[in-house]
Simulated scan of single mutants.
Amino acid sequence: MRISQVVAPRLSAIVEVPDPVPGPHQVLVEVIACGVCTSDIDVWRRGPADGGAPVRLGHEFVGRVRAAGSLSGRFDVGDIVTGLGGDGFAELVLLDADSVLPVPAGLDPVYAVGEPMADLEEALARTDPRVGDDIAVVGLGFMGLGILQLAKTRAPGRLIGVDPNPAARERALALGADLVLHPDEVDAAFPQSPLDPRPRIVLEVTGVTAGLETAGSIVRPFGTLGVVGYHHEGTARMDMRLWYKAVTVVNGFCPERPRLIRAMGDALALLASRRVSYEPLITHRFGLEGVDAAYELMDARDPALVKSVIMP
Rank of each mutant, 00 (worst) to 15 (best):
R259G: 14
Q149T: 09
R46M: 08
V228N: 14
I80G: 13
C34R: 04
E296V: 08
V43N: 10
V219M: 07
V77G: 14
G176A: 11
G88A: 11
G58F: 10
V15R: 03
V55Y: 05
V227S: 10
T235D: 14
F75Q: 12
T209V: 10
R154N: 03
A53G: 06
S70F: 00
G234T: 03
R275V: 12
R74F: 06
G73E: 04
T209W: 11
V208I: 10
A293C: 13
P221Q: 00
P116W: 06
A300N: 14
G229S: 05
G63A: 12
I32K: 03
R241G: 11
G290R: 01
A210S: 03
K152R: 02
R198M: 00
R46T: 10
T235Y: 12
G78S: 12
V15I: 11
P191N: 12
L107K: 09
T127Q: 02
D134M: 04
V65S: 09
P24Q: 04
G73R: 11
V137W: 03
D119G: 05
K152T: 01
K307T: 04
I135C: 03
E170V: 02
H232C: 00
R241I: 09
L84Q: 05
R285W: 06
D163K: 14
I80L: 15
L148F: 05
D302E: 03
A294Y: 04
S72P: 01
D42S: 04
A67I: 12
V249K: 08
P312Y: 09
I201W: 07
G78E: 14
F253D: 14
Y278I: 13
L305C: 15
A177S: 06
R257V: 04
F142N: 12
V93M: 07
L148I: 06
P199G: 11
K152E: 09
E279G: 08
L84G: 12
L145H: 00
F286S: 13
S273P: 11
G78V: 14
A304W: 04
P258G: 12
